[in-house]
């Protein structure tokens, strides 16, 4: 971070002071240094600051365009729509930091949701139904992780295949029908507001914060990042790379399972196409929140901002009366833009 001491041509001609620095450069140098210090250190933090700025801008634009936007009820709706995607996105960002990806997360959510729903219809005790979600998700995630870590298959291939397999499993479990008319067992949990904030959202924040803690304060976080930097190097350094990789996918699976439980509790029906497109949304939220698509750096807590941004945007588009097909266009464009800016940013720096 050295500041150069070169003179601009005009100063030399104007001042004519030879080799002593002109007054202008003397003033300017400390200023430059100060500016450099203000700028956030890590690239991840830089991305998050600019994202917050964009969010403020969006809120401003939507408020002007729609009278229904800036209301408590509308923001409660946004918060209510966040937890499922949020949990997926947090898990996804951890997997992405290892340099991996999991396309099958949405289908795993479907499988878990169907099993939770079936269990509720059978009249199992509430805690059994609640636990079935994370357990199913954990198992499906572990399968992905093992294939990626122990057989060295590209994550995108493994999980793309897994997505079709899980979707087939959903079909086998329910045929071409819906699970509907589920009991209101979990209503008190998923439909209550505390201080105006929906409980599932609080639940999501608590999980995210404990994962952020796990990620920043325990060796697990370092190992995840090291694998994303270079798996081979991490292994030479003594990291049990395979175990950690499986752990990352399993963790995503468990979070997917919790999301499935929240989904079923809230909607009380499960259709075959449940959560389709959600993996991509989760990847988008993670990238927008500062996680690199190339792995090796990122943020768990950034996903909260990323998910808020996506849901805010979708909400605004609905309020403006824009047909929902444009949702996909905007989301798709957003993913490409986020990834491109990540890559371009890196190219400029190296």
């Amino acid at each position: 971070m050295s500041t150069s001491t070169t003179f601009s041509p005009c100063e030399i001609s104007r001042g004519g002071v030879g080799d002593t620095p002109s007054l202008l450069t003397m003033i300017r140098q400390p200023m430059i240094r100060k500016l450099q210090n203000i700028r956030p250190r890590s690239t991840v933090a830089q991305k998050q600051v600019s994202l917050l700025a964009v969010i403020c801008l969006l809120i401003g634009v939507f408020s002007v365009l729609s009278p229904h936007f800036l209301t408590l009820k509308n923001f409660q709706t946004i918060l209510r729509n966040m937890p499922e995607l949020g949990l997926l996105s947090v898990g996804m960002s951890i997997v992405m930091m290892t340099g991996g990806i999991d396309i099958s997360a949405e289908a795993a959510l479907g499988v878990a949701a169907i099993l939770v729903g079936k269990s509720m219809l059978q009249g199992d005790p509430a805690w059994v139904s609640a636990l079935i979600g994370p357990i199913t998700g954990g198992i499906l995630g572990t399968i992905n992780g093992v294939v990626v870590a122990y057989f060295g298959v590209l994550p995108i291939i493994v999980t793309l295949g897994a997505m079709y397999v899980w979707r087939a499993v959903i079909f086998l479990l329910v045929g071409a029908r819906w699970l509907s008319g589920l009991p209101r067992t979990f209503d008190p949990l998923v439909k209550t507001f505390v201080l105006g904030i929906p409980i599932p959202f609080i639940f999501f924040l608590l999980i995210t914060m404990s994962l952020e803690f796990l990620f920043r304060k325990t060796p697990f976080g370092w190992h995840i990042l090291a694998i994303g930097n270079s798996e081979y190097s991490a292994r030479l350094a003594g990291v049990r790379t395979r175990r950690v990789t499986v752990g990352a996918y399993a963790l995503l699976g468990v979070l997917v399972g919790i999301a499935a439980f929240l989904y079923v509790g809230k909607h009380r029906n499960v259709e075959m196409t449940v959560a389709s497109g959600m993996s991509l949304e989760a990847i988008a939220a993670a990238v927008i929140g500062g996680t690199s698509i190339l792995g090796g750096e990122g943020s768990v807590i950034g996903c909260v901002i990323g998910v808020f941004f996506i849901r805010l945007l979708q909400n605004g588009l609905v309020l403006l009366g824009i047909p929902s097909i444009w949702d996909y266009l905007v989301l798709g464009g957003l993913i490409i833009a986020a990834i491109l800016s990540d890559l371009l940013y890196k190219r400029r720096r190296t």
Binding site: A226, N229, S230, A234, L236, A237, G296, E297
Partner: peptide, 11 residues
């Protein structure tokens, strides 16, 4: 060297 490039010295 087996270093993780984006991580810092202590890490």
């Amino acid at each position: 060297l087996a270093l993780a490039d984006k991580m810092n010295v202590v890490e």
